[in-house]
C-alpha cells in the first residue's frame, strides 16, 4: 500500500498560517525565554488547538505546529510541548468532558500548566497512586500531572518532584514519586500511543524550526567569515556540506508537514507519519553538527548559541523513542516481519 494518501494541499502553508508564523517569530524573538501568560493573553497560543467550548479558539493542530516550529527555532516556550501538546491531547482524546471542562480553560488562558507521566511504574492502591515515573517533561513545575497507572489515566497535582540535571537545559525533566498521592481518574490509557504520535508530530515541528535556525545562521556566517582572502562559503567543501543539509532539511519539512496534517485531520495514517519523523531527528543532528563545525572555533565556545542547539537536537533524538524505535514501530505497522 502506498503512502501518503492525504490531500497534498494540506502539506502547504496557508496565507493565514504564514501570517501566524510571522507573528509568532516576532513574539519569540522579542520576548525570548518563557512568557507563558503573555503568550496566552496577547496571542492566545495555548488555546489554538483547544475547542471553543473549553475556552480555546478552535483552530487545528496545523496552527499549533506553526507556533511549535517557531518556538523550536528560538529554543523557547518549553511548556508548550508538555502542556498544550501532550496534556491537552490526552484530555481531548480521553473523551472525558468533565475533565476537559475542568482543566482546558485554565490551560487556554495561561493560568494552568500540565504534563504527562506515561510509561512509569505507578499503581493504584486504596484509591491513591504509588510508584515513580522518570524523565517527565517540565515535571518539577507543571501544575497538573496526567499519569498512567494500571491501564488508566489519572489527574494528580500532589506528587514529590526531583529535578534531573539535563543535557538540554531548555527542556527540564524531573523524577516524580507518587506516595499515596490523591488522584482523579480521567479515562483509559489506550490513548497513550496516539498521544505519543501527536508528541512525535509536535517534536518534528520543533525540530524543523531548529534546523531552520542552524541552516540560516550557518549560511550567513560562511558568507561573511573570510579566510584565504575569500568568504569560506565560496569553498566547494563548505558549499556541498550545506547543500547536503538543505536536502535533509527539505526531507524533514516534508515529514513534519505530513505528520502535522495527519494529526490535524485525525487521519488513520498518523502512526506511519509519526514514525517517519525519524528523518527530522537525523536532519537536526546533522544540522547542529554542521552549525558547530562550519563556525569553527567560535562555534565551540560556551558563549555561542550553537551548543544549545546541539543539546536540544541530541536530547530530542531520544524523546518519544529513538530513530530505531520509530523504525521498529513502522515495520510493525507496515507488516514487515
Amino acid at each position: 500500500m502506498t503512502y501518503p494518501r492525504i490531500d497534498p494541499a494540506l502539506l502547504v502553508e496557508t496565507p493565514e498560517q504564514r501570517e501566524l508564523r510571522s507573528v509568532a517569530r516576532d513574539f519569540f524573538t522579542e520576548h525570548g525565554g518563557d512568557q507563558w501568560k503573555r503568550m496566552a493573553g496577547e496571542l492566545g497560543i495555548q488555546g489554538l488547538a483547544i475547542p471553543e467550548d473549553y475556552g480555546g479558539s478552535g483552530y487545528t493542530f496545523a496552527e499549533l505546529a506553526v507556533v511549535l516550529e517557531e518556538a523550536g527555532r528560538a529554543l523557547c516556550a518549553v511548556k508548550l510541548l508538555p502542556t498544550v501538546v501532550l496534556a491537552v491531547h490526552t484530555l481531548l482524546y480521553s473523551g472525558n468532558t468533565e475533565a476537559c471542562a475542568r482543566y482546558l480553560p485554565g490551560i487556554a488562558d495561561g493560568t494552568l500548566t500540565a504534563t504527562v507521566a506515561f510509561g512509569g511504574d505507578v499503581h493504584v492502591r486504596d484509591g491513591t497512586l504509588h510508584g515513580t515515573v522518570d524523565y517527565v517533561l517540565d515535571g518539577a513545575d507543571a501544575d497538573l500531572v496526567l499519569v498512567s497507572a494500571d491501564g488508566q489515566i489519572f489527574a494528580c497535582e500532589s506528587v514529590t518532584r526531583t529535578s534531573r540535571r539535563v543535557l538540554d537545559e531548555t527542556r527540564p525533566q524531573a523524577l516524580l514519586e507518587f506516595r499515596s498521592s490523591p488522584a482523579t481518574p480521567v479515562g483509559s490509557a489506550d490513548v497513550v500511543p496516539r498521544v505519543r504520535d501527536v508528541g512525535r508530530a509536535a517534536l518534528a515541528a520543533e525540530q524543523v524550526g531548529g534546523i531552520g535556525h542552524a541552516l540560516d545562521a550557518t549560511v550567513s556566517y560562511v558568507e561573511q567569515r573570510r579566510q584565504f582572502g575569500r568568504p569560506i562559503g565560496s569553498f566547494q567543501a563548505v558549499k556541498h556540506r550545506l547543500a547536503r543539509l538543505l536536502v535533509e532539511y527539505e526531507a524533514a519539512r516534508s515529514a513534519a508537514a505530513y505528520a502535522t496534517a495527519c494529526v490535524a485531520t485525525e487521519s488513520a495514517e498518523l502512526p506511519v507519519a509519526a514514525a517517519a519523523t525519524a528523518v527530522c531527528s537525523s536532519a537536526y543532528q546533522l544540522a547542529t553538527a554542521e552549525y558547530v563545525q562550519l563556525h569553527g572555533g567560535i562555534g565551540f565556545t560556551w558563549e555561542h548559541p550553537a551548543h544549545r542547539y546541539v543539546r536540544r537536537a541530541r536530547s530530542s533524538e531520544v524523546l518519544f523513542g529513538t530513530t530505531q524505535d520509530r523504525l521498529t514501530d513502522l515495520a510493525a505497522v507496515l507488516g514487515i516481519a
Binding site: P4, Y258, A278, Q324, I336, A337
Partner: peptide, 26 residues
C-alpha cells in the same frame, strides 16, 4: 527490518517532497 523501514521512509519522504512541489504549483 529497520533497513527496510528506513527505505520505506525514504520513498514516503521522496513522494512528499514531490507532492509539496505540485501542491504549491496548484
Amino acid at each position: 527490518r529497520q533497513q527496510t523501514a528506513e527505505l520505506f521512509v525514504r520513498t514516503l519522504v521522496q513522494r512528499l517532497i514531490g507532492l509539496r512541489v505540485t501542491a504549491t504549483l496548484a
